[in-house]
């Protein structure tokens, strides 16, 4: 009979770490959770920004992540360079492509058709399918890994082992979130973005070129997300099929954070990562997704605008 779930938990009781090691495992789990939360946050922040300005749930987010990963793979495989060098290239290349796609998305979202929000959703889903199919055709179906200077490097602090590449991802998320905050709250252009997110008509009346702003925001989002993809490919691996997973996680985090809330995305990602780590370690890995869904359900029930109550 298959041994899973609670049977697995019971069977593991006899093999649990000893008392002195329990605290070590707890600390390790906490670090694991916070770091994976930081990793998830990297590709969720831009997703939130796009929703805030364009009012579009971008299902193509996973596609941008995978494209960034492939760029890093080819830079490391063909040019024999460190995968991290792909980060600025990913931002510039996919930022430019996003800038070109942004106006199309804007037109669809603001078209006079019935339910333009659904049309925009369908467009991003179509874009995701196109990206996935294109990558499969162009680059095949093999899974690739991206070596970087930090791959396999770890820092041991007492009983806790900290994977350096995850630290880099978490730092990246914090820097990006911080940078976005500064940009949004300390610059005139950030003010224009916030004004557009709040009330598009009023912003337009104040002289904001909404169309151009949407293109810039989508370009910024695509660039940031592709940079996150470089980190994802370095931490995990990349193939054309993993994009859907990132899209789903971005959506989970966005719902938990409150759609459009950039700060909430960071908090929600850390929260989800920690829940996943603790449930995996102390209950069983097969319950981790259940715990994530239960958390989402409860948060939506209690605070539909997200944990920070700042979502749309």
């Amino acid at each position: 009979m298959p041994e899973s779930g609670f049977a697995s938990i019971l069977s593991n009781k006899q093999s649990e770490p000893k008392n002195g090691e329990q605290l070590d495992l707890f600390l390790q789990t906490l670090i694991n959770g916070l770091l994976i939360g930081g990793v998830i946050a990297t590709f969720t922040i831009g997703f939130q920004l796009t929703f805030g300005v364009l009012h579009v749930i971008d299902f193509a987010v996973g596609g941008w992540v995978v494209l960034g990963g492939y760029l890093a793979y080819y830079i490391s495989a063909l040019l024999k360079l460190d995968g991290f060098l792909a980060i600025p290239v990913a931002f510039l290349l996919f930022g430019a492509i996003g800038y070109l796609i942004g106006p199309i998305l804007y037109n669809v979202r603001n078209s006079r058709t019935a339910r333009p929000e659904l049309m925009a959703l369908a467009l991003t889903f179509g874009l995701f399918t196109l990206l996935r199919g294109g990558m499969l055709t162009a680059w095949g179906f093999n899974t690739h890994s991206v070596p970087t200077a930090l791959s396999g490097e770890s820092l041991t602090i007492g009983p806790v082992t900290v994977p350096m590449i995850r630290v880099a991802a978490a730092v990246f998320a914090i820097v990006i979130a911080g940078g976005l905050f500064l940009f949004l709250y300390r610059t005139r252009y950030g003010l224009a973005i916030r004004a557009t997110a709040e009330n598009r008509q009023n912003a337009a009346l104040m002289g904001v070129n909404i169309r151009r702003l949407s293109a810039n925001v989508y370009g910024l989002y695509a660039g940031i997300t592709a940079m996150a993809g470089v980190l994802m490919a370095a931490i995990f691996s990349v193939n054309p099929e993993v994009g859907l997973r990132y899209t789903l996680f971005a959506f989970f985090v966005a719902v938990l954070a409150g759609l459009g809330s950039v700060g909430g995305a960071l908090v929600a990602a850390l929260m989800l990562g920690t829940i996943e780590a603790f449930v995996s370690t102390y209950v069983g890995s097969s319950y981790s997704l259940l715990a994530i869904f239960a958390t989402l359900f409860l948060v939506l029930l209690v605070s539909p605008r997200g944990i920070l109550k700042r979502g749309l």
Binding site: S11, Q28, L248, T281, G284, S285, S288
Partner: peptide, 24 residues
Amino acid sequence: DLVAYELVPAEGDLTPVISKIAAL
């Protein structure tokens, strides 16, 4: 001696389960 038997979701992060097994 089977010290751990873990089922993991295909989409999940493996760090927690590997940490747990490493401790054993």
